[in-house]
Nucleic acid binder design. Structure first.
Length: 591
RNA sequence: GGGCGCGUAGCUCAAUUGGCAGAGCAAGUGACUCUUAAUCACUAGGUUGAAGGUUCGAUUCCUUCCGCGCUCACCA
């Protein structure tokens, strides 16, 4: 290719004039070429090259003229770049690493191994080896312990005719020692070809190295899977937040603590399941695609079913379906699954998030408070090994849930001189003095949110909410301005919401109609009329307590994560655009 | 949606006032049969997120756009 030759010639000339890598020149040329101007003035800097050359007649010419760096701007380097027509000639997009790895695959197969292997029957896992033999001395390993173990190569240290590697499995690592005279010519050739990130199987005996590390003395190697891309750096791991979320698999490989977070999350969910099962709750699954949405105040996602030709909503809550089941006699039900709310994103909000909701017939919000205290204490213990966890430098004790009524909390957490008394907090005049909201209830909620919410670091229950902000809860019989509802707070976040369920179909009809009126006025978050739900209540629902616990936020607190995205494996991000790997691979495909 | 910040090699990070884009790890070649962030020598690797603008000259200054983070608003 003529232009390629020209480039080589330029490189040669510059090599003589000054030690200058071909890569550097290529970049300089490509910069000029990209501009595609006939004349481009270039900085002189310290460049002291005067070189010019012509290719063959009629071919593009690169003319480089240099001067001294005299600092007064009088000397310039000019590149007359007459038309290198295809910049691709110079901007090679080939990925050297990928090319090398594909070549590696060929070599591995030439040796008689599969680059992408089949079943490997291991006798031990890496964590199993560490747990079983990590405490044994060299002498105790003398009756030979043979193991077959597989894992991902995370570190490699070659030393001529021997070498060490660390295999990672389930987030833990064991060292293997491979020497030529132990594994033979062919396996040792394979060992020398390994890249960090490859997955291999090793058979051999356990021993301790001179420095005392438990290791597998390899006798045979099996190749199981080839990495084509390079792993994140061994020391710092993967730190780029965006890459960590987009390529969570890399995050999990490179950052052991991330794995722990998701293991803890799994423990939280299984602990809650087990505790609810023990109390006679059964797990159910209700529709995620709903013709009518309800159970919370939020904007939904809309989708469409083709055959029925109807729009459906991704559920914002399972509440109304779960209560239908209570009507049907499933007196203790729970569901752990995703809700979808079409809202902004933040460190505490992901558009899809996981909620536990449970309903228990014949109890009320007082009963649920006691149950919540037990559930949370036990979950913290099961997930972290302690009912006390540290979050953001504060110790949170889940074994004792503080309880305040909303009014008490305002008085209790007030900062400043004019701390209100409990009498003040129920005085409409005092409330309107401290909030611009129209009604006393809304004002109380407003004041609570501004002065109390962020101070609820210790796990706490706030109970008795104004009726205005709680459309689905049953009113307190002795104070109809308030409802039997509580929320659970910890680390300044709301993590749960519960109430004595409204089970009077007449009242429910009235509240739906109020919501409908709000919809008419353009409130997208107002409830729709769900007449089937009213019909269900009309068959009589037992008095019931219902509660929702945000699993993601609970997981944040119990894992010490500051962002909800750190406890969701694949948080919602904008699509990243073309990756280009498929094109690269296609370009390197042998034909 | 508003405000602030970030974007440089596969990864982690430098780059003086606007003046030749560098290092470590990873990669390639060679040496090394107990290393462990192995070591030693050499090599390669860049559209400085993208597009414009200012300038003799831009990673650096300006504008717009893209992506991410924090924050406010919205939202439980």
């Amino acid at each position: 290719m003529p232009n390629g030759i020209a480039l080589a010639a330029v490189a040669g000339i510059l090599e003589n004039a000054r030690a200058c890598g071909a890569g550097r020149l290529r970049r300089a040329v490509s910069r000029a070429v990209v501009d595609h101007r006939d004349l481009r003035e270039f900085p002189v800097g310290a460049v002291q090259i005067l070189s010019h050359f012509a290719q063959r007649p009629g071919q593009p010419i690169l003319f480089v003229e240099g001067g001294n760096d005299n600092g007064d701007g009088s000397s310039q380097t000019k590149i007359y770049n007459s038309l290198f027509p295809q910049k691709e000639t110079y901007l090679s997009l080939e990925d050297e690493l990928l090319k090398q790895r594909l070549e590696r695959i060929r070599e591995i197969e030439e040796l008689g191994y599969r680059a992408y292997g089949r079943r490997y029957d291991f006798t031990h896992t890496v964590p199993g080896i560490l747990a079983g033999y990590g405490a044994k001395t060299a002498e105790e390993l003398v009756p030979e312990v043979r193991v077959r173990v597989a894992g991902r190569v995370m570190q490699l240290r070659h030393m001529g005719k021997a070498g060490f590697a660390h295999l990672q499995q389930d987030g833990e690592r064991v060292q293997i020692y491979v020497r030529k005279d132990a594994v033979g010519e062919r396996d040792f050739k394979l060992f020398k070809m390994l890249d960090i990130g490859d997955i291999v199987g090793v058979e051999g005996c356990l021993f301790r190295t001179r420095t005392g590390e438990l290791s597998v003395h390899a006798e045979t190697l099996e190749f199981l899977s080839k990495t084509l891309l390079s792993m994140p750096e061994k020391w710092h791991g993967l730190e780029d937040v965006e890459t960590r979320y987009r390529q969570r698999y890399l995050d999990l490989i490179a950052n052991p603590e991330v794995r722990k977070v998701f293991v803890t999350r799994a423990r939280i969910v299984s602990s809650l399941r087990r505790q609810l099962e023990e109390r006679g709750f059964i797990e159910v699954e209700t529709p995620m695609m709903q013709p009518l949405y309800g159970g919370a105040a939020a904007r939904p996602f809309v989708t469409h079913h083709n055959t029925l030709d109807i729009d459906l909503y991704l559920r914002i809550a399972p509440e109304l379906y779960l209560k239908r089941l209570v009507v049907g006699g499933l007196e203790r039900v729970y569901e752990i699954n995703r809700n979808f709310r079409n809202e902004g994103l933040s460190t505490q909000h992901n558009p899809e998030f996981t909620m536990l909701e449970f309903y228990q017939a014949y109890t009320d919000y007082r009963g649920l408070m006691d149950l919540s205290a037990e559930l949370l204490a036990r979950t913290a213990l099961d997930a972290t090994g302690s009912a006390t966890v540290e979050y953001d430098g504060r110790k949170l004790d889940f074994s004792r849930l503080e309880r305040y009524s909303m009014r008490e909390s305002v008085a209790h957490f007030w900062e400043g001189e004019d701390r209100p008394t409990l009498e003040d907090v129920r005085d409409p005049e005092w409330l309107s003095r401290h909030s611009g909201k129209a009604t006393a209830g809304e004002a109380l909620t407003d004041i609570f949110e501004r002065t109390v919410e962020h101070k609820l670091i210790q796990p706490a229950i706030i109970y008795d909410y104004p009726v205005e902000t709680s459309p689905l809860s049953k009113s307190k019989s002795d104070d109809p301005a308030f409802v039997e509802r509580f929320e659970i707070y910890a680390a300044g976040m709301e993590i749960g919401n519960a109430y004595t369920e409204l089970n009077d179909p007449r009242e429910q009809r009235r509240r739906f109609e109020m919501q409908l009126a709000m919809r008419e006025r353009g409130d997208e978050e107002a409830h729709q009329m769900d007449e089937d739900y009213v019909r269900a209540l009309a068959y009589a629902m037992p008095p019931t307590g219902g509660e929702g616990i945000g699993i993601d936020r609970l997981a944040m607190i119990l894992t010490g994560s500051r962002s909800i995205r750190d406890v969701i494996l694949f948080p919602l991000l904008r699509p990243e655009g073309p990756i280009g790997l498929a094109d690269l691979m296609r370009g390197l495909e042998p034909r």
